[in-house]
């Protein structure tokens, strides 16, 4: 078969795209659609059994589920604490590293190590550190710094059990935002800073009026990405507390997973995931709409 040069030129890019798209379709799009279908069924895991159509029952059930409400609240808390936590600390670290006369690469690498470390390993380590009564954190609190009288029951007390998860979430994410902020800071023209310094701006004014506006698109970008990441918190909760004690630290994903894989309630689990997806899409959309301003740099 002969194809005209024109057709060949049109076909070529598609051919190159196919492997990636195929992969994307099979492992992303298909499960996505399948999950959507499942969320309207009383899904039966055994092949051959009939899954009954239940309409919006699975979604309705979520709104009357106390534990899901708690999971939603916990996810929100996680996001509201870890996203600003990561961004502020990452910004401070980025500015400090940026002002270093030398050794930038070393510190950048050091702060980036947590990002590339496996979630599983650090989660298990954190769980180990926060053991009670004989964990290393309790040892420092009681024996070294004398901050508390008795060892704290970290993973047993619903009020305390979420703290290690938050700490891990912030610590592990700093490096990622930092690297992006460093790149953005490197793009801030030196002349502007010099000019404003000449005009008598102090360090803080310089940062607030010159640097911040210039890197604000980057900040919005990291915020959107971190927010999505925050809502997707799962491995650390699953491994550190398992949602316990008494499902008090359950987050949306861990609860959806629990319903699907422990109780075989895949329809309900899928509905919970879709509720979360709807939330994330809405939030991300609003963020980009509200926060991204047209940039006029020069």
């Amino acid at each position: 078969m002969y194809l005209s040069l024109k057709t060949q030129k049109k076909l070529m890019p598609l051919l190159f795209l196919i492997p990636g798209l195929l992969f994307f379709a099979i492992f992303q799009i298909y499960p996505l659609l399948k999950g959507f279908q499942m969320s309207f069924l009383d899904w039966q895991i055994m092949p051959g059994k009939v899954s009954e159509f239940v309409g919006l029952d699975n979604y309705a059930r979520a709104f009357n589920d106390v534990v899901f409400g708690r999971a939603f609240k916990n996810t929100l808390i996680y996001t509201l604490v870890t996203v600003p936590g990561q961004m502020i600390i990452a910004m401070i670290v980025a500015i400090l590293i940026n002002s270093l006369p030398k050794g930038k690469t070393l510190f950048r690498a050091l702060y980036y190590i947590p990002v590339i470390t496996s979630w599983v390993i650090v989660s298990l380590l954190i769980r180990y550190f926060f053991q009670s009564p004989n964990g290393i954190v309790n040892y420092f609190l009681v024996e070294v710094f004398h901050l508390v009288e008795k060892p704290l029951p970290w993973l047993r007390d619903p009020a305390l059990a979420f703290v290690p998860i938050l700490i891990l979430g912030i610590w592990k994410g700093i490096g990622w935002s930092m690297v992006i902020y460093l790149a953005a800071l490197a793009g801030v023209p030196k002349e502007l800073e010099e000019a404003s310094a000449m005009d008598g701006a102090n360090g803080w004014q310089n940062f607030w009026h010159i640097t911040m506006p210039l890197i604000s698109p980057t900040i919005v970008f990291t915020m959107v990405m971190l927010l999505i990441g925050g809502f997707n918190v799962f491995i650390s909760v699953y491994l550190i507390t398992g949602g316990g004690p008494r499902q008090m630290t359950e987050v949306m994903l861990s609860y959806a997973y629990h319903q699907a894989f422990d109780f075989l309630d895949f329809g309900y689990g899928a509905a919970l995931s879709y509720l979360m997806a709807a939330l994330i899409i809405t939030l991300s959309f609003l963020q980009i709409k509200l926060l991204r301003k047209p940039q006029e740099i020069y």
Binding site: A25, Y30, L33, G48
Partner: peptide, 20 residues
């Protein structure tokens, strides 16, 4: 591609169904 992927996924090994 989406249609193809659905077809592929439908081709899971056929297990003896439970009902029979």
């Amino acid at each position: 591609i989406i249609a193809l992927s659905m077809l592929l996924a439908a081709c899971t090994p056929t297990a003896p169904s439970v009902s029979e």
